[in-house]
Design a protein around this nucleic acid. Sequence first.
DNA 1: GTCTATACACAGATAGAC
DNA 2: GTCTATCTGTGTATAGAC
Lengths: 200, 200
Amino acid sequence: MATTRPSGQHHGDLRNALLRAALDLVAERGAQGFTLAEASRRAGVSVAAPYKHFADKDALLAELARAGYERQHDLFQAAMAAETDPVEQLAAFAAAYVEFAAESRALFEITFSAGLAKARYPALAEAGDRVLSLLRTPAAHLVTDTAAQDDLIHTIGAAAYGFAAFLTEGIFGDPTTSLDATTRRARAAARKLARPDPQA
Amino acid sequence: MATTRPSGQHHGDLRNALLRAALDLVAERGAQGFTLAEASRRAGVSVAAPYKHFADKDALLAELARAGYERQHDLFQAAMAAETDPVEQLAAFAAAYVEFAAESRALFEITFSAGLAKARYPALAEAGDRVLSLLRTPAAHLVTDTAAQDDLIHTIGAAAYGFAAFLTEGIFGDPTTSLDATTRRARAAARKLARPDPQA
DNA sequence: GTCTATACACAGATAGAC
DNA sequence: GTCTATCTGTGTATAGAC
């Protein structure tokens, strides 16, 4: 049987245990407060053990970021699929982004700050691009010019991020109690920003 | 004469030298990358010297944040004073916030992440409140309900922050070359968000 | 007001045993 | 795959001399 642990093989899946511990740590102390040593302690292994699963500290964080982008992709895709009007699709994205930030504070923080590391981890850049590309279709329905589409995508993205960041930083008050109001505000703001300019 | 330095009194103003060194450090490595030890090295003093000027590391950061809020207040007040229409005043604020972030990356980062420390440093909370209060007047010209004013202020603030953060994180490309386009976008976005809802 | 010296804690990473 | 042991680097902060 494989249920016995001859000591020296504590985990069936240390890799995932470390990823989960790291996520908790980031949620508690922020992305910078994460250390491989502390994650090891929480997973119940020595500080040397992680190096059999990750090249170094950054590699573990990059893997978390990649998973975060994939989760975003699935969530946003589902939220947008529930709408047919392109303006409402972009509004749904903004609301979903705020919800993601509230529900997965750590992943939200890691994915945003992972921009710098994209050069070293191609899989990361690709996963991030897939998320952004979700906005392309609705944007194309609203404006024809490619530059104008980029403009719209960036505007919606920046606004959604602003709401998400204010929420998680507690600027709107306690994050759990202000979540509903914030998603509503983000959705309303995205609508105004995506709607064809009334006086242009 | 006071021009000689009897060794043991290197600086006429070590306090300010440390603040400046800290600012450079944050600009290079982020708010978390700042250390008192490195700031001391750059100022050319021992690691013990700062403790005659600041209680600890956090006190130095809090002082920087306070100065950052004051700078914001002056900049935003001036930008808004150039406009008379309340919608344009809020738009001017958003543009000025993006410019501040680009021009003072370190202060931008410190002031935003300083939220947590406000409890320990009352002067900080006060300086931050003064900045936010600048938006109250134009908001009051646009909506009567206090809750609606808060809503508007938060919406404009979140959107402006989103543009500023995307710019400094390089999401729009190189920050220096994309600054102009970003201030324009932030201004346009704030206008749409502040304008009375066309179908409400 | 600044220095030297020091105590203390903690991180990242590797070598070699099992 | 995991452990123990270790090296190395770095930061915070204090004590006491000048």
